[in-house]
Amino acid sequence: MPPHPELLLMLLADARLPAAGHTQSGTAEAALAHGLAAAELPGYVSARLASVTCVEAGTAVVARAVLLRSGGTAQLADVAAAWAARTPSPALREAARVQARALLRLADRLWPEAGALQAVRELIRPCRAVVLGAVAAHVGLGAAALARLVGYDDVQTVCAAALKLVPMDPAVVTGWVHDALPDIDQLAATVAELTEPASIPAVGSPQIEAWAQAHAATSRRLFRA
């Protein structure tokens, strides 16, 4: 019997997953270095959910949909191209591709038989959202659950990184995550029904992109991105 989808979701959302999550701050390190106050992080998280994270979640959902209707590498490449056109910052693209490599290595180990992952492997430098979409297609994770995973992971990434950068009460920060849950649900509702690359949300954040670029150029950093 295949494992319950809830258990697979827990596995994929777990920060202990060896998929390079600990190297990421969701650009929070750069934001804090450029004057964002720790108290503004809840607003920062919500701006991400409305912009760059919405692009990631939409990309993952569409990649899953494409693979479930037996799309191959060519169709998946269209999804990856739509994501790249919606991600103008080279630093953010690089971070997503580095994470994709780690996640793909792990997925190969866990699901060596997955045909969906074969299509991803044939892409040149896939992004993380496409790999997640392929994993979801293989393990039977639904579109809304996949979108929630992307949103939740992003919020936790920012908040966990913030705790390492600014002395704070972890319970307060967990409260921020809790308070962002309705926004994550809204994000999932926005993207869950998407099936076409052209329909992937394209909301950008010039501020987050500028911070991400500045962060990539500095050597004084704890997190990679």
Partner: peptide, 29 residues
């Protein structure tokens, strides 16, 4: 504000910026 640039039918840049007076519009800091 939305911009779509395509070359030979392929997307080069697609961006949607909803900007306004609401407090969570952190898109441009």
């Amino acid at each position: 504000q939305r911009i779509t640039v395509e070359r030979d039918g392929h997307p080069v840049l697609v961006e949607d910026l909803p900007l306004g007076p609401w407090p969570t519009s952190g898109l441009i800091g």
